[in-house]
Nucleic acid binder design. Structure first.
Lengths: 349, 349
DNA sequence: GCTCCACATGGGAGCGCTCCCAAGCGTGCT
DNA sequence: AGCACGCTTGGGAGCGCTCCCATGTGGAGC
């Protein structure tokens, strides 16, 4: 309507210049009054604030970004399909923690996928081009060059998960991860303490460090058992419920005497649970099941799942805190944080 | 390390000026070459592009925003607690559609809550302050002044859901909603066609239009039945599984002869389902259940739920499309879109 | 009464970009 | 051969803000 392009509600949006004029001071004074308020007389302070409210002044954040070289927004990047991003509760939970912490610092959360090459290129554009002060990347597969590339552009990166190889030494790159090795070990040791001797593992994707770490935790315990840790006691999954069910079926086929299963996350544990029951196994009498994650909001589901809890919301907050500190240029106590896990015993073991 | 504040990887980030110098042309020519490419000779074009790649040039999006008066990012605002935002699959699904459409247009998605007054004030700051070109608001309660306030600031708003009252006439405010009335009616008519005569309803929050609309759809059919539509055949829920279970228990207590339940969403239907089974009712033999939503990804869950499907992903895309059109200043065919629903009959009816 | 300093203020510079306009240049027409 | 038009090009202006520095003003100290 009205105008062809100026999208404005009609009148000119008030600028700092106009506020200053209205208050009878200069631009510089107005700016100081509205921000810190240092070196501003009480009189000027009040005049400026009154003028600002009278005019309905809102600082233009783009202009501020330009001069400060900072945008006040950070990206949360997930290298997954949009289907998984928006359906796996793990991501939602990390996002919840990240969101909470960012909001407390008045920082915008930009959500984006980076799975296809085009999406990855866009992330680079967005971070290097400044509207992103920093980036949190969760779900890293393989030796993904993206985090390193962004960090190299001078934009701080925090990875949700472990960092291996040369990326560990890039100063602009930090990480927050659960102690997957110890956590997995505690899960399997718990199964052993329950008298289980034939313990299978349904792993996460083995191109992800988290998948390999939890597998390794399992192996380190199971290889000490009489039967050892044969290949057939392990099935690679992808963290989905279907993969859990399929994994349980495969384990059962190879080892009819299976009496324990440790899955790399809770979603797969649920899948395994129904497959086991469908195969006529009672849980936990015949087969005990232990998962990993213990996301909030899943406590009520029956049967109560024995699982390794990682404080995912808090880890999300920690990622955001770390990133914000890096954006500020503050020194970090430790670049690579590892968070302890807790075993939560419920009904399935 | 290195430097105290300049977060840069050390060296100066290349600017358009530097690219122009490298290519031996002026700033203006370089700009034109990198953007549309109109009125630029082939020679200059190639020289500039080569220089840009050689220098690793990334345009400063803050500067561009400042001059264009546009940031290339839009906000997705949810007026709910962060717990609900990150656990209710409905939001995730809308977000999925919005995300897909925005990415196709290279627009950033900024995710934010606006429940507390402080959060709502921040939204106003973010939208009026320009780094948000437009805002999509989902889950509006009561007569929320926020959408109107943002629209009045000159920032286009799209509401996911119905708009009532004076807000309908604000030109900068559009909406996308499912045809809840007709959808609810078709659900209840389906129950009637299955021979049910005692049909209860577990509604959404009645301070939301969607809650009232679906209730009204139920009432319009049920009031024509012999027993009429007494108050006791309705329980107000809040879209959570617990509310669904509690609602079913209350309905059963008031009407032991209950033979049908229509719930305002699928999550509550799941809750109702388990409460009904716990009360010894067989579904659908004793009591038939129909939900609302039919979100993708829930098809596999057993028993298959009869429900009213709304194309939520597509609706999310539609919201984004509408908003982007408004940002462009394009004329809208219709400001308030209503999307038809489909009844999907499965095992619970 | 004069100097000195702390504090308050105004306004220029500049962030990196896009837009606009004037100037340059080659071609096709009369 | 001369003129006009169209395509390219360079560079100034300006988006709204923050920083910095020079200037102004008052009170404390000698």
């Amino acid at each position: 309507m009205e105008d062809s392009r100026a999208a404005d509600g009609g009148r000119q949006r008030p600028t700092l210049e106009m506020v200053a004029a209205e208050a009878g001071v200069s631009r510089g004074t107005a700016s100081r009054a509205l921000n810190g308020g240092h070196n501003v007389s009480r009189r000027a302070m009040e005049a400026v604030q009154a003028a600002a409210t009278r005019l309905g002044y809102r600082p233009n954040l783009a202009a501020r970004s330009l001069v400060l070289g900072r945008s006040g927004s950070i990206g949360l990047v997930v290298s997954e399909s949009d289907e998984r991003l928006f359906s796996d509760p793990y991501f939602a939970t990390v996002a919840r923690g990240v969101h909470a912490e960012l909001m407390a610092h008045d920082v915008q959360l930009v959500l984006a996928l980076a799975q296809t090459p085009a999406e990855r290129e866009r992330m680079l554009r967005w971070s290097a081009g400044r509207p992103l002060d920093g980036v949190i990347i969760i779900s890293v597969h393989g030796a993904d060059p993206l985090p390193g590339a962004i960090a190299t552009e001078g934009v701080p990166v925090v990875i949700g998960g472990a960092v291996e190889g040369p990326d560990r030494d890039i100063p602009g790159l930090a990480s927050v991860d659960a102690d997957n090795l110890t956590g997995a070990r505690s899960a399997v040791e718990h199964l052993v303490s329950r008298g289980r001797t034939r313990i299978g593992h349904i792993s996460g994707p083995l191109d992800m460090v988290v998948g390999r770490d939890r597998l390794e935790g399992w192996r380190s315990v199971v290889s000490g058992l009489p039967g050892g840790a044969p290949q057939t006691l392990t099935v690679e999954g992808d963290f989905t419920e279907a993969a859990g069910a399929e994994g349980a079926r495969r384990l059962l086929a190879a080892h009819p005497d299976l009496d324990g299963v440790f899955t790399a996350n809770d979603v797969m544990a649920r899948g395994a649970l129904s497959a086991l029951q469908q195969a006529g196994r009672r849980v936990p009498q015949d087969v005990a099941v232990v998962g990993f994650d213990d996301l909030p909001g899943t406590e009520g589901i029956s049967p109560g799942l024995t699982t390794v809890r990682q404080p995912v919301i808090e880890m999300g907050r920690q990622m955001a805190r770390t990133l914000l500190a890096m954006v500020e240029g503050l020194p970090l106590a430790e670049r690579h944080t590892v968070v302890p896990t807790t075993l939560v015993v419920r009904e399935t073991s």
